[in-house]
Structure formats: C-alpha cells, structure tokens
C-alpha cells in the first residue's frame, strides 16, 4: 500500500491531523466554533504580511533548537539542555554585539560565532561528563539549564547593562534586523536569521549524511560497542556531538539577541525555545529536512494561535490545550505507526 518513504511522511501528517481534530472537539465541546477557530489560526499566521513575517521570525529559532536536539539524538544523546544553550548563546551574542565596535562584516559574524561558542561550551560540559564519567546527559543538561538562566540574569544586570533589567542594545553593525524586510512585512520583527537557520539545516544534513564524521556519529548512536570495536573513539564522538548540538542551540539564542529583540531582557523563567525544540525534532523525525518542516508547523501554531482569542473568541488557555494535543499526538506517533503497520499487513 505505501512505500517506506511515504510511510515515514504519513505518520507525522496523521499525527497533526488527529491533533487538529482533537483540538476541534475540545473547542466544540466548550461551545466555540472550531472552523472559525482554525480560520483565525490560519489568518493569524498568514493573514497579512505582518503575521507572515512574525511567523517566520518564530520559525527561525525553532529550526535551530530542533536541529540541536535532532543532532544529539542521532548520535544517541538526549540533549535536554538546548534551553540553557539558547540562553547562553543569547547572552554571548548580545554582549559581543553591544560592547565592541567593529565594521559589520567583522562584528556580526563575531557576535554570531560567540553565541555558537557559548552554546557549544554549554554542550561540552555534559558531553565531557558523559564520556569520561558516564554521568547521564539528561541530568547534567537539566542542571545546566538552571545555571544558564541565573548566570544570564546576573550578566544582564551587572555586566551588559548598568544595573537594569534589560541588556544594552546591540550595535547596528551586529544586528540581523533589516529595514527592507521590516518594510516588506508591515514592521514585523522578521530578520535575516532565517537564511542562517536554513543553511544550518543543510550543514547538519551534510555532516550526518555525507561525511565520515557523520558516519561515526550515527554509528555511535546506533551501537557504541560496535563503534568501539570498529576503532572509533566513542568518547570523542559523544563530546563532539554535544558540542555541535550546543552550537546549533546557541545560534538560536543569537537569532533572538541579534535579530528579534536586539537586546536581552532578564528572564524569570525559561524561554521554552529549547524545550519546544525537543518536540520539533521529534516531529521532524530527527532529520534536518523534517526539522525545518516541523519548525514551520510549530511557528505557525504559536503565532497563529495569538489571533484566535481576538478573531474567534477562543480563550488563549484553550489554544494552549489545542497545541498541547497536537504535540501529544505527535509524541504518541507510535500508536499511529502501529495502526499503519496493521493496515499494511492486511493489504498483503
């Protein structure tokens, strides 16, 4: 009935449709019109150039955090720490962006690299502990998230500002924002970062599918024993994979710091960009291409949903439930996989 490729495509599509259906039932049972709700969602994401720009703006960091989680996952590691890596990346980008003066062709790349480096460092520590001491990366990365959150607040108040609750603004020479794009999109906060995000997706695909390092990462992810037997340095691969993963997430922080906001506010809670990245990677099947598609879906839901309370009167709490349901069905794609396999068997 379906080929393997089609099968892998069908599972996430059905997950999303079931999630939308379940969301419709919830809206309906609370007395709201689901059709109106979803039209509002669509318009909220694509209805005019402003909404479209905001959607792309939201998609940009999602692609990068999704890539971060997916990359680690492919080498057998669960990077829960994308959240913290985003935060330190954001801090580093804003710091470099606001505290030095240089021409744009030096300043912007430097600020972006600083973010990648900070994220990489935040991934390096759990990778090192995992490789050398066997400490589980999930525990360490969760802890690293909190460290990142509180360290960033300290940095904002004491180093990158004069005791305020927001950091200094980054210089124009380090900004990803563009007047041209802003004018095109009725002054949305969309910026050049989306290009970088797409390039990074291609980079990840290339590393994993075309290079001998990618061959090693995946081999270690599938079977560390056989990798060791084959002469691969398993520890080195674990560390390097966490470093690359952290760098991706750090770049997501740069998108926020240099593009969307142009500064960093102190955070009382997590940004959730990193945590949503887990769902993005999961929905995208941990591939580069799938992650980009899933990031678009998440961006659309997130931005489009903002329009639902005003246009369709659906309360924002309910909107959160609808999004949660979609994620739930994605996460339980195992069930859908099982049903499809049954169908395939009966065809034969």
């Amino acid at each position: 009935m379906f080929s393997n490729r089609l099968f892998n495509l069908l599972v996430p599509i059905i997950s999303v449709l079931l999630g939308l259906l379940a969301g419709a039932i919830i809206m309906f049972s609370f007395g709201y019109n689901p059709v109106e709700g979803y039209i509002a969602l669509w318009n909220g994401a694509f209805g005019n150039s402003y909404f479209f720009g905001e959607t792309i703006r939201q998609v940009t960091p999602y692609i990068l955090t999704g890539l971060a989680v997916a990359f680690a996952f492919r080498s057998g590691l669960f990077n829960i720490g994308a959240e913290g890596q985003v935060i330190v990346g954001w801090v580093a980008a804003v710091w470099v962006g606001s505290s030095i003066e240089a021409p744009m062709f030096i300043h912007l790349p430097l600020a972006i690299l600083a973010a990648a480096f900070a994220g990489a460092l935040w991934g390096f520590l759990p990778g090192l502990l995992k490789a050398v001491k066997g400490v589980h990366e999930v525990i360490i990365t969760i802890m690293m998230n909190y460290i990142a959150l509180h360290v960033s607040n300290y940095m904002i108040r004491n180093v990158i500002s004069d005791g305020g609750d927001t950091s200094n603004r980054v210089a124009d020479t380090a900004s990803l924002a563009s007047n041209w794009i802003m004018e095109m999109t009725s002054y949305s906060r969309m910026h050049y970062g989306i290009i970088l995000a797409i390039i990074m997706a291609v980079v990840m695909w290339f590393i994993l599918e075309k290079t001998s390092s990618g061959y090693e990462f995946k081999a270690v992810g599938f079977n560390p024993h056989a990798s060791k037997y084959a002469g691969m340095n398993v520890k080195k691969n674990i560390i390097l994979s966490m470093v690359i993963s952290g760098a991706f997430a750090g770049l997501a922080g740069a998108m926020e710091g240099l593009g969307t906001f142009g500064y960093m506010p102190s955070h009382s809670a997590f940004t959730n960009l990193g945590f949503d990245g887990i769902a993005v990677a999961l929905l995208g099947g941990n591939t580069a291409f799938g992650t980009v598609i899933a990031a678009f879906l998440f961006g659309i839901l997130k931005i489009g949903a903002l329009n639902m309370p005003t246009s369709a009167g659906v309360p924002s709490e309910l909107v959160e439930i609808v999004i949660a349901l979609i994620i739930f069905f994605v996460a339980s794609s195992y069930i859908i996989r099982w049903v499809l396999l049954r169908l395939r068997k009966e065809e034969k």
């Binding site: 599938f222 079977n223 056989a226 990798s227 037997y229 002469g231 340095n233």
Partner: peptide, 26 residues
C-alpha cells in the same frame, strides 16, 4: 587503540555479532 591494532593487520570476528560485529541499523 582498537584502530591502531586494526591498522597493524589484525582482523577480528567477534563473539557477539550483534553487540560488536555490526551496526544493525546501518
């Protein structure tokens, strides 16, 4: 290291082919 030994001219058919001999998902 295993790699150096392999490069020196040792081949190894391992006892446990699923654990060591193959990456089953490759």
């Amino acid at each position: 290291s295993p790699r150096k030994i392999t490069e020196s001219g040792v081949a190894h058919i391992p006892q446990d082919r699923h654990k060591f001999g193959l990456v089953l998902d490759y």
